[in-house]
């Protein structure tokens, strides 16, 4: 464990908690892409299948359970509890355009042609594009509540910190996870446009982010 990965995991946890509390307290999921949240729940499900088969550390197990519970709880809030506030017409990204290529690639480019490995690879590739429906929804509606932008900021920052973690681990352990690193770079690049808007718009106190 290194400081970059610990900070990254904390940013990830903060992002997920920010979103969950925003929906829970405002009793509304307006402006939130349910599709992205379903994709994240799928990412955690396919990645954490080893939860019961291999014990790494208490921290690892606890965080996996927390991420899974919060991911499914958020999907529950969006599609069941507060479904009347869900903007399904704005959440129109065709997720099959993500799932099919990601599934195909996970069969082609993986470390081992075994079910758990293919599913883990699928989760890595899927995570790099899972935020696209949310980013697409914001460009479609032309705006995002400031709390949603804070959620996206921490979510984008978490994988950027993981990139630093992988540089550090390569420097100290002499190896790197090519699939995770390439996907992590792609994932972080998708946030660059958002980061620019976040720093120029939201942090200047203009509250809501309105796209030009």
């Amino acid at each position: 464990m290194n400081i970059f990965r610990l900070l990254g995991d904390m940013c990830h946890l903060v992002a997920i908690i920010i979103l969950f509390l925003k929906i829970w307290r405002s009793k509304s999921c307006a402006g939130i892409s349910g599709k992205s949240q379903v994709l994240f729940a799928l990412v955690f499900t396919t990645r954490y299948l080893d939860l019961f088969t291999s014990f790494i550390s208490v921290y690892n197990t606890v965080m996996k359970v927390v991420f899974l519970v919060l991911a499914y709880a958020t999907v529950y809030l969006i599609y069941l509890r507060f479904r009347s506030t869900y903007n399904s017409e704005s959440d129109s990204f065709r997720v099959e355009f993500l799932l099919v290529p990601v599934a195909g690639l996970s069969f082609l480019e993986n470390y081992a042609f075994a079910p758990l490995e293919i599913l883990w690879t699928f989760s890595i590739y899927l995570e790099s594009v899972a935020i696209l429906p949310q980013l697409f929804m914001i460009t479609k509606t032309g705006e995002a509540e400031s709390i949603t932008t804070h959620y996206l900021f921490f979510l984008g920052l978490y994988r950027a910190l993981y990139l630093a973690n992988w540089v550090w681990r390569y420097h100290t352990e002499g190896f790197f996870d090519q699939i995770a690193v390439v996907s992590g770079v792609v994932q972080t690049i998708f946030y660059c446009d958002f980061f620019y808007l976040y720093f120029t718009k939201v942090l200047r106190g203009s509250g809501k982010m309105t796209l030009p």
Partner: peptide, 10 residues
Amino acid sequence: CHRRKVKDEL
């Protein structure tokens, strides 16, 4: 080569 899966990350 130096590429293999990291197993201890979330």
